[in-house]
Design a protein around this nucleic acid. Sequence first.
DNA 1: AAATAAAGTTAGATGAGGTTAACATCCCCC
DNA 2: GGGGGATGTTAACCTCATCTAACTTTATTT
Lengths: 248, 248
Amino acid sequence: MITLSQSTEDYLEAMLIISLERGVVRVKDLAAHLQVKAPSVVATTKRLVREGLVRHERYGYLELTAQGLQIAQEIYTRHKNLFRFLHLFLGVDEKTAERDACQMEHHISPETMGRIVQFLEFIEACPAEESHWIAAFRQFTATGTLPTYCTSPHGEASAYTRTSHTQGDTAMPPKTLADLPAGQQAEVARVGGEMALKSRLLEMGIVPGTKITVERVAPLGDPVEVTVRGYRLSLRREEAAVIVIKER
Amino acid sequence: MITLSQSTEDYLEAMLIISLERGVVRVKDLAAHLQVKAPSVVATTKRLVREGLVRHERYGYLELTAQGLQIAQEIYTRHKNLFRFLHLFLGVDEKTAERDACQMEHHISPETMGRIVQFLEFIEACPAEESHWIAAFRQFTATGTLPTYCTSPHGEASAYTRTSHTQGDTAMPPKTLADLPAGQQAEVARVGGEMALKSRLLEMGIVPGTKITVERVAPLGDPVEVTVRGYRLSLRREEAAVIVIKER
DNA sequence: AAATAAAGTTAGATGAGGTTAACATCCCCC
DNA sequence: GGGGGATGTTAACCTCATCTAACTTTATTT
Ligand SMILES: [Mn+2]
Ligand SMILES: [Mn+2]
Ligand SMILES: [Mn+2]
Ligand SMILES: [Mn+2]
């Protein structure tokens, strides 16, 4: 069992991703993807060829060997699972979750990775309605407010729960469609987000004043199924999150 | 803001730990702790002195500066929180959780770290009785069996849920006291563990045949409060885990 | 088909982080 | 107070991973 450095693992992973996107892999793609200069790619590639993980035709394409492909897939799978865990479950923002996942993927044991995958499976197998707690956790990270049935052990608030809210310390209500549990109805207050997304949503009939009912929320909050003016829509979490609501 | 490599961060962390344990830090302690030869310590130390994070008296002790201490503490705090998360929540075994924590501590963003700390706080603030799901997750990791109210999304079992059980595919019942939720009663089948622990437990009256009632389980399953022969005992999770039971 | 642009390679340098072998210093014990 | 073992330092070397500058090969224009 060869043991690879973080850097070389990233070369393999990048080769896999590029080959999926573009079909073939060239030195400059790899250099761009890894934010590194071409000679670095050539040097590392040589080592990988020596290890039997990569083939390289002089002045031509790079290619993963069977063994290289297998390793790359393992890394990439870890990456995707970690990302899911960080972004969908812990609620870390996309960019950061992406970066962290691509770091952690090299440093996490199979045991821990296994537990995380199991945890994701567990959560996805158990409907969100049944275990209300994910929503409660989201609420907590956003506002620092615990559900009423929770008793703070030391009465101390975490230094991390510092959502620059200038408002008083009353519990803040859910604010966007992404915060609503299944079965709730709400009125659209405002649609935020980028212009492209915004107009797509407005086109669907999601305009201020519209009443939206949340029908089902997938295990990790993605996607959300809603009813708007009698139509059934399935919204991605990112979409639901830009729809500001007044709760009723 | 200086950015340090994994390796140098570990030097600082090790210095903190050694100084807490032994009072002073010497080259050979550091070498032993980091599994590295003395000249490596000297070389890295020189860099750290240059950065103003460490003081070093020739042929004498090493010492963290105020700035070095602060960084070391941050790393060590991350380490401990990650360990808690991995071991107590995800259920990764101690050794592995320790190793993984000491890797992840260098590669995790403040955002993600914050979410993890919040999650631990959240879980600890919400009594286990209320949200039954942690116990259900433990059950799942141990046996691969989901609670009845859960619906497997694809009917596929994870490759990770492979508890080398030679038995049929019937759901395996909980086996040790650590697996029991609050309110359950069970009879001791066998007491395992190391001799010292074993005899301590036997002394407490925990012998095969004894009936034990689980009164309360702390948020992460540590400690467990039980009643044995009318006595109230508080057991550490590690202790409860060596008590094999027949469920009744 | 020649000229030019783009992509890839080589050479040589740098710095981190590790090693072994040899030497220097400290300190305890007789 | 002088040895001798433990500890620390230096020197010389290694690999990995990156860089820049200069060169070669391939691809695209004109
Ligand atoms: Mn990566
Ligand atoms: Mn990655
Ligand atoms: Mn570490
Ligand atoms: Mn650590």
